[in-house]
Write a protein that binds this DNA or RNA. Structure first.
Lengths: 339, 339
DNA sequence: ATGAAAGCGCTAACAC
DNA sequence: GTGTTAGCGCTTTCAT
């Protein structure tokens, strides 16, 4: 590569354009364009000429120009709150596999669970005129909602069905997941139930699970006995610390519900370290169905969530025409050995 | 939103362009453009008019057009092999935080550890005329290398320094990480050492670690006594299964080196389940320094890798002018309780 | 401080 | 089957 004498920046040897290819192939630009996009008709002879010229010159089409000239782009915007929580890489993975197969590129933005940030990222993504936008969750600022509604493209809201969507909604009910968790613990006979969570003000879906959990307990005339909230993103360390604090204050709990599996694994590790018998002395219940919990000596009781499938389905729908839809992919409680 | 009667596709109410804003504000397009990009000069009165008009009309600039008209885009392409392995979300996270602050958007592509796929994804990303491209690893097909060299933009190759880079290289030596791991086990007196890995033909960096590991053993007149390779992506389950197979064949190993922490945690769980004393009866050594390993009852011995920092540094360099560089961010062996 | 005009590189009618 | 002609929506000289 050539570097500029003054600033050392890589210096491009003037980019090859379609005009160059057309000239080299001795055809018009439109013909070259047709061949390169295999669209419209052309003789096999011109085909060879154009393809040959493009290869010889190392032509890379400029999709920026292409997109501007045609109408729709082949970009899909994806807005997620975090990359730390494995949930969202899983979502991305599902979405990406479908999008790639359909010839789309994904442009990713991470909000860090901040709605104001989400708003500005949505605006920024929209300025790339994507063919569609996928976003985690149903809660957005007024202005974000207005932008999404007015964008004139398909919008998919993912991972949650508790609320009103804009166009496409793919997920499952977090509130119901919380209820099911509570009913499970009640059915197994646990009565002194604690909760260990991460900062829930920002993770709205965790908040909904907790809400459902409380509601189901209340229906049985029960309530959460004690809780520890770690003001940090969810992690194994946070879960371990949270449970430790909780047990110090309320040593005679018989079960603990965690905001997710990362947290629950931390709790599990604490119990191992302290030789607290699971589930006899203390039961643990997580959420997400992570691999790591399933291969522990005692598989973690948890709720499996269809994260990859949500990404796939969302991507499929966002690329296609159709009426607004809600797709509930459900979840599944897996009773392991910790309850 | 309006839906088309026939196909149900969301129907845009003609998109607002700069022309509309200019007309509404009763100024020329160029003036409107200057105000909106706060670039060049304009009276505060026009400023108000333009900003007001833009807000009133709900104008969202079209960056596709903007990019084409100016030169450089504000996109950075990122090519990673996987989203399953937490390493790459971490890398993305680091990169994203820097890019976002600098006003860039990232376009992500996932190769699934497939070089042919990488080649076509690089081509596809390049067609968006990004300002720079970040890619994991130093090994690419001939054609991919040629495209990267010829793109005339900054290229950052990440996570590995064992080899020749194109422009910017940020990472550390995987080979050396393997060597250090072997020396650690030797120094602790282990002599019958096994290896549990995932399909290494595709994960080139894992292959380099193994190579370094073998080399350092050889220098001490030793060799890997037995190994189990799981032909699947690395995971806790794969590690557990791998160790189980390995111990069945070679029950008297005294230490096992794993291709990464996910695998090692799986091995750790097997030992807990089988009541195999760690490290007296069997020592375990991982790689990556994942949170989950550090909060286990016996913290996992491992090598901490600066994944987020690699993403940050790579992003910083890829956005800036400068000469080609190699930045070695190093790694750190953390002796936990499992060796 | 503001406007007019010329593209950026490509696609998409519409002629031929 | 192929070429000509207009733009896509914006930025950027260059006048004024």
């Amino acid at each position: 590569m050539n570097y500029d004498e003054r600033d050392g920046r890589p210096r491009p040897a003037r980019t090859i354009t379609l005009t160059d290819v057309a000239r080299e192939a001795e055809v018009s630009e439109s013909t070259a364009s047709r061949v390169l996009r295999r669209h419209g008709s052309f003789s096999s002879r011109t085909r060879e000429r154009v393809l040959g010229a493009a290869a010889r010159l190392g032509y890379v089409p400029n999709r920026i120009a292409g997109t501007l000239a045609s109408t729709g782009s082949k970009l899909i915007g994806i807005v997620i709150p975090s990359l730390t929580n494995i949930v969202f890489p899983d979502l991305l993975r599902g979405a990406n596999s479908v999008l790639e197969a359909a010839g789309f590129q994904s442009v990713v933005a991470v909000t860090d669970y901040d709605q104001a940030r989400e708003e500005s990222l949505i605006e920024s993504l929209l300025s790339w005129r994507p063919a569609g936008l996928m976003v985690a969750g149903l809660e957005h600022t007024e202005r974000a909602q207005a932008m999404l509604r007015g964008a004139g493209i398909r919008i998919a809201e993912l991972m949650d069905t508790d609320g009103q969507g804009i166009d496409i909604v793919v997920g499952y009910s977090n509130r119901e997941a919380g209820r099911v968790s509570a009913r499970h613990l009640i059915a197994r006979g646990y009565r002194r139930i604690g909760y260990v969570g991460h900062g829930v003000g920002r993770d709205l879906r965790a908040a909904k699970r907790l809400e459902g959990f409380r509601a189901a307990l209340a229906e049985a005339g029960m309530a959460i006995v004690a809780e520890a909230i770690v003001t940090a993103p969810s992690s194994v360390g946070a879960g371990r610390d949270g449970l430790e604090r909780l047990l110090r204050r309320s040593p005679n709990l018989d079960a603990v519900y965690f905001s997710n599996d990362d947290m629950a694994i931390g709790g599990y590790f604490l119990c191992l370290a302290r030789a607290i018998a699971i589930p006899e002395r203390l039961a643990l219940l997580g959420y997400n169905g992570l691999d790591v919990g399933q291969y522990a000596p005692q598989p973690l009781s948890t709720i499996r969530t269809p994260r990859v499938a949500v990404g796939e389905t969302g991507a499929r729908l966002v690329c296609a025409a159709g009426r607004p839809t809600v797709v509930d992919l459900g979840f599944e409680l897996t009773a392991g050995a910790t309850t």
